[in-house]
Nucleic acid binder design. Structure first.
Lengths: 341, 341
DNA sequence: GTGAAAGCGCTAACAT
DNA sequence: ATGTTAGCGCTTTCAC
């Protein structure tokens, strides 16, 4: 293994100078010396040992990113956005797949922390706990008040950090408003798991909009399932077997809406004539499927960039408190709502 | 920060003993002592510093996994399978998203190597290079003959390691055979980029099967696009504008087939009556879409497990040479081929 | 069974 | 501008 000593020897300098060159500081280096060092690096094919560096510096320019799963295109897109923003700022991203399990998520938090990561980003922190163990992630992060932390939903209980979220209430309101504009008065909701802040807020947007229009929300059809097209498919199949009490549906995520579309097709319904739907997120697939999804578009790239920003800010001046930050969404009108193609 | 010294002090032992306990070796520890150590660990909320450990041991129980992108469900599924297998064996997986760019992939290889990872798994190593720079990943891995390496496709030129792949030729043959069994004689192909081994092999399976049936492969329609449903959609839209020279299509991946289905629907075709298709991979979505995809199912979980196995084997006895390993696939008959639902 | 101590490769304060 | 050197936290050989 080639070490910094070898480089120094070949360049005819001290090891410190090699560090100064490679790190661009903290001390200046003469141009000629720098050149010699760089050349020695090249010649020896030297690669710095990140473990040694992390040990010495007591932190590593790494951001730990934990996603609930990769199968959900929304999470995939958000993960990609975060990774892109982080890489652009010189961070390395290490990615953990929690598979919706709190235990796995907590294990990842531990690994990342033990690797001296300089920040943690959680996408969908509300993982299922296995019943026996409680929410280990929360407990862990409550202890570990030091780490820069951004969470998309929710911000772990008792932890410092910031909750970064699309602005769900107005977004959902716009969606439901649009459906009302198409003349629907029986607007049901296919919601996500209640433990998510986003779900609570989208729900509120739906309820308040109905109530503003003097429609009794409590008497509307509401069903709930995970953020999973397959589960949404099964649920919708069952739902469509009984007489329908709704002509339109506000669906919490595009992912679920895709399941609904497939189930509706299988049941012989024609969308949007037999059933109008509007959903939320704005994943790419929304534009591919037939009918194309009218959806509340999240600013996914900005969310990713902002998450990394917030980590940087927290690195600069910690500790932080619990804060919330919302980014605006925009209704994208396509055909699933009944608008002309 | 709590260090091993603190633990040793509280437990009233030496730091060495703490290591022996935490690592279960290399020396035995009296039960009573072990108990005291464990209790001290608990009491202090001690978390070992992975960087220090990696530095000292000269390697880290980490597998670097590089995926071309997370938007492709096949890659997502394979990534998940690998991650599951690795985690089960006590490895931590760090994941890089190459986004189909050779430069990004190479950068990830460097980071992972600099972090003393004990193995590298590349899913889809044939990233696009940006033209100016050559294939940096290949160059890097040719130099670095030491790392345990498993690649799904292809095995970087000049590198030691093993190419792990589904058995594409017989798989593709079974797919085409099945289409011929339905009476088709004009069986086109929607292929992937030629730089992939899998593509070359699936192509061969298609060609040989046609020729065995005395059908001229050279006169069949062949189109090519990336592993991307959106690109497949566009391509198919264009393809369907001119008169069709085929009644059936062998499609290299389910991902592409999904794009074809959407485009066919948009063009007013009914599948499988107007066009029969069989694809490859066996992602979960194949069973959700209408028509459900008849596809050559890869043993995704086994591939993941095997990849990790191979890394372990290479860790045990390196260096390895270039080897190839194939896992058998199985045709799953659904409705897109023309079989009754 | 346990402890002392010599590193692992790098950083950065301090000295020159 | 450059060199010397004391750690960073952990592992493991070697003594006891």
């Amino acid at each position: 293994m080639v070490t910094r000593d070898d480089v120094a020897r070949l360049a005819g300098t001290s090891t410190a100078v090699v560090s100064y060159v490679l790190n661009n500081g903290p001390r200046p280096v003469a141009a000629a010396t720098r050149r010699r060092v760089l050349q020695a690096v090249e010649e020896l094919g030297y690669r710095p040992n990140a473990a040694a560096r992390a040990l010495s510096r007591r932190h590593d320019d790494v951001i730990g990113l934990i996603v609930p799963n990769f199968d959900n295109p929304y999470f995939a897109a958000l993960g990609t956005a975060i990774e892109g923003a982080a890489t652009a700022k010189g961070f390395t991203v290490i990615l953990g797949n929690a598979r919706h399990e709190d235990d796995r998520q907590a294990a990842y938090v531990e690994t990342f922390l033990s690797r001296q990561c300089s920040g943690l980003i959680l996408v969908g922190a509300a993982q299922e706990s296995d019943g026996r163990n409680g929410p280990r992630t929360n407990a862990l992060l409550k202890r570990e008040q030091g780490v820069p932390l951004v969470s998309f939903d929710p911000l772990p209980n008792g932890a410092r950090g910031t909750l970064l979220t699309p602005d769900n209430v107005p977004g959902a309101a716009a969606a439901v408003e649009h459906l009302l504009g198409h003349g629907h008065t029986r607007v049901g909701m296919l919601a996500g798991p209640q433990k998510f802040k986003a779900v609570q807020e989208r729900e509120r947007g739906w309820r308040e909009t109905l109530e503003n229009a003097e429609i009794d929300a409590a008497s509307q059809t509401v069903v709930r399932c995970r953020f999973d097209r397959y589960e949404a498919f099964d649920l919708t199949e069952r739902l469509l077997r009984s007489p329908r009490q709704f002509t339109a549906l506000f669906i919490h995520t595009d992912e679920q809406a895709i399941g609904v579309i497939h189930a509706a097709r299988a049941a012989g319904l024609t969308l949007p004539q037999d059933l109008a739907i509007v959903s939320f997120d704005g994943i790419r697939e929304a534009g591919l499927i037939t009918p194309q999804l009218t959806t509340v578009q999240q600013p996914i790239t900005q969310l990713g960039a902002r998450a990394v920003d917030l980590i940087q800010k927290q690195i600069a001046r910690r500790p932080t408190n619990r804060t919330t930050e919302r980014l605006t969404c925009e209704l994208v009108t396509r055909t699933s709502c009944g608008c002309p193609g």
